[in-house]
Design a protein around this nucleic acid. Structure first.
Lengths: 188, 188
DNA sequence: CGGGGGGTTGATAACCTTCAAATGGGGTGG
DNA sequence: CCACCCCATTTGAAGGTTATCAACCCCCCG
């Protein structure tokens, strides 16, 4: 969709699918900032260039808005303005929680936090919160949680063995014991 | 100053000193979100409760604004509004860069990134960018970088031995080789 | 049937943490 | 003014969690 550093000409609204948003270090290490889904906005950088790269995880549909028009809209329409502030504030909150995760949580806690957030996201859209879709691959999860593919795989196996989750077909996962997962998300 | 979860009644502007902003896990692990200095704002949560705890690192002075008044001000004054958006966007950028640091950098890279950011902050306020003040203790640095006190101390010793920095009196530090520090901030 | 990508599993090692003790500097009280 | 104590920092040794390297499996697709 767009790359970090590119001139930011558009703002996007995702209408379906999942997008991954990430930053790269010069040697190729990648940190995924977040996964963006239907209803979320993308590229609200308040800046001339994009601050990160965005790529589709699944096939996805987006609506494109010229940035200029968006800005006048924001200045003129107090409702949109408030919504923008709310969205941004929420992003900030999410970012701060992710910092706690990256800086202070163990691999198991990271995975459980991630699963819990998938469940919450699903619930917010009125979907089942115990059978959620997990369209991104192990590499994406690893780069989101600050782990390696192998550690993600091992930890998932561990949770599976513990009877907390079950892997289903079609990139779906069943959260058998959401309460325990929630507990394990914050403390061993 | 205030604690995470408290009812957010005020917004603060720091006029002098350094404040640490952090979140806690139930078992006491701490992640410092950032250090706030003179000129920065604090508690712009767009939310009814504070999202983090703020404590003084050094003796500090702040100006307090009732949140309600702040909000009407924002709605009525387009200049303040733009500034608020800019500040928030900048916070978001910082947060995202911190995620890269926490998730994907080594201890040495983390320390160098931290020192570099101190230098940049100092430069922005017109101060010398090679002799900067570092008022926070090792514990604060550790909780900011997702490390332990000991690792921070060892890594600092290592940088000192390598001739990149010198510790001075009064919580000051000299960055002898800013270029090398900048290189080491992103790749070993 | 062969190839390839994603995922899992295993063995080993590195980095960082943990636990422990020593060092040093600043402030207080004698 | 000096001794002592407290706390922050440094240093040391051992251990653990996670990374790295490597092999293997599985399924889909050509």
């Amino acid at each position: 969709m767009f790359r970090e550093g590119e001139h930011a000409e558009n703002v996007f609204e995702v209408t379906s699918g999942t997008i991954r948003v990430f930053k790269l270090l010069p040697d190729g290490r990648r940190q995924i900032i977040g996964f963006v889904e239907a209803g979320d906005f993308l590229g609200l950088s308040f800046n001339d260039t994009y601050l990160y790269t965005a790529e589709a995880v699944t096939t996805a549909a987006v609506r494109r808005f010229p940035r200029r028009r968006m800005e006048t809209l924001i200045d003129e329409n107090p409702i949109i303005r408030r919504r923008l502030l709310a969205v941004t504030a929420n992003e900030l909150l999410t970012a701060q929680e992710q910092m706690v995760l990256l800086g202070r949580k163990t691999a198991k806690e990271k995975l459980c936090t991630f699963l819990l957030s998938l469940s919450r996201k699903a619930a917010r859209r009125g979907l089942c919160d115990t059978r959620v879709s997990m369209p991104m691959g192990r590499a994406d999860i690893a780069d989101y949680l600050g782990l390696t593919i192998e550690t993600v795989s091992r930890t998932i196996t561990c949770l599976k063995t513990a009877g907390l989750i079950r892997l289903l077909d079609g990139h779906k996962i069943e959260l058998t014991d959401l309460d325990t997962i929630a507990e394990m998300a914050e403390a061993a």
